[in-house]
C-alpha cells in the first residue's frame, strides 16, 4: 500500500518534471533570440542611429526613414482595418442571422488569416498598385496590410463581443433600449479591452511583415522621408532584408541594431496589449 503510493508519487513527479521541461523548451528559443539580438544589437543603438538618414550606401548613419516608414504603414493599416474590422465584427456577432451565409463568411474570415503573406503582397500589387493605379505607395501598402490584418481584428473583436454575457443585452432591451443603443452603451464598452488587444496584435503582425509591402510600397533606398501617402517608403522589415542580402560590406552591428529596433517596436505593442488585457480583467465585474 505504502509502496504503491510512493511509486505513484514518483511517477507524478517525473511527469510534472517532463511537462515543465517541455514548456521550458518552447520558451527557450524565444528567450535565446531576444537575448542574442539584444546583446548583438545594443552596441549599434545610438541617438544618431535612430534619428539620422542612412549614409554611404546604408553602411553608415541611421535608419530613420525605415522607422518612420514602419510607423506610417502601421498607422495607415490602423486607419483602414480598425473601423472596418470592428464594424464587421459587430455585424457578425450582433446582427447577422445564424444561417448558411453567415457561417460561410465566418469560415472565409478564418481562412483569410491562414493565407501566406506573399499572396497578400501579390494581391495588393494587382488590385491597389496596378488596377487602382495607386503605384507603389504607403497607401497601397497600407491597404494591402489592412486586408491581411482584418481577419485577425474581426475574429478577436467578434470573440470579445460574444464574451459579453447575453443577459446584459436582454436587460438593456427590456429597459427600452434599441439594439444599437445596447451595443453602443453596454456591449461595446465591455468588449473594448478585448477588441483593442486584437487590434494591437493585428497591427503588430502588419508592422513586422515584409512580403505584403515588398511589391506594394517598400523602397530599397530613399534619400528623403516620404512626403505623402502616394510616396513609397522604406520600412524596417524590408530594410532588414535589404541590408542582410543586397548590400556588400554591410557592418554586421547595423543589421543587428535594425533587427533590435523592429523587435522593440513589435514587442512593445505586444506589451501594451498584455497590459490592457490584464487591467481589464482586474476591473471586470462579471
Amino acid at each position: 500500500m505504502e509502496r504503491s503510493l510512493t511509486s505513484a508519487r514518483i511517477q507524478q513527479r517525473i511527469g510534472f518534471s517532463l511537462l515543465g521541461l517541455v514548456t521550458f523548451a518552447t520558451v527557450l528559443p524565444v528567450l535565446l533570440i531576444i537575448g542574442f539580438i539584444i546583446v548583438k544589437g545594443a552596441p549599434a543603438i545610438s541617438w544618431e542611429f535612430l534619428t539620422a538618414m542612412p549614409r554611404n550606401g546604408m553602411r553608415d548613419g541611421g535608419i530613420l526613414p525605415a522607422i518612420i516608414g514602419t510607423f506610417y504603414l502601421t498607422l495607415g493599416t490602423a486607419i483602414f482595418s480598425v473601423p472596418l474590422g470592428i464594424a464587421a465584427a459587430i455585424y457578425i456577432s450582433e446582427y447577422a442571422p445564424d444561417n448558411f451565409l453567415t457561417r460561410l463568411i465566418r469560415i472565409a474570415i478564418i481562412n483569410l488569416a491562414g493565407i501566406p503573406s506573399v499572396v497578400y503582397g501579390l494581391f495588393g500589387l494587382g488590385l491597389f498598385v496596378l488596377f487602382l493605379r495607386l503605384g507603389t505607395s504607403i497607401l497601397a501598402a497600407s491597404l494591402t496590410l489592412s486586408i491581411m490584418t482584418l481577419p485577425v481584428i474581426i475574429s478577436t473583436a467578434e470573440e470579445a463581443l460574444r464574451s459579453v454575457p447575453q443577459a446584459f443585452r436582454t436587460v438593456s432591451i427590456s429597459l427600452g433600449a434599441t439594439r444599437w443603443q445596447t451595443i453602443w452603451r453596454i456591449v461595446l464598452p465591455q468588449a473594448m479591452p478585448g477588441i483593442i488587444t486584437g487590434i494591437i496584435l493585428g497591427l503588430e503582425r502588419a508592422a513586422g511583415e515584409t512580403a505584403p509591402i515588398l511589391f506594394t510600397g517598400a523602397a530599397f533606398f530613399l534619400p528623403r522621408l516620404p512626403q505623402s501617402p502616394f510616396d513609397a517608403t522604406m520600412a524596417l522589415p524590408y530594410h532588414i532584408f535589404v541590408i542582410s542580402t543586397s548590400v556588400p560590406g554591410m557592418p554586421i552591428q547595423i543589421q543587428y541594431g535594425t533587427v533590435l529596433v523592429l523587435l522593440v517596436f513589435v514587442l512593445g505593442m505586444n506589451l501594451i496589449a498584455t497590459l490592457i488585457r490584464q487591467r481589464a480583467r482586474a476591473r471586470r465585474q462579471w
Binding site: 436582454t170 427590456s174 429597459l175 427600452g176
Partner: peptide, 16 residues
C-alpha cells in the same frame, strides 16, 4: 417595454 417593465430571475445589474 417602458410601460411594461421586467425583473429577471437572476439579479443582472448592468456593468455600470
Amino acid at each position: 417595454r417602458r410601460k411594461i417593465g421586467m425583473v429577471f430571475s437572476r439579479p443582472v445589474v448592468l456593468p455600470l
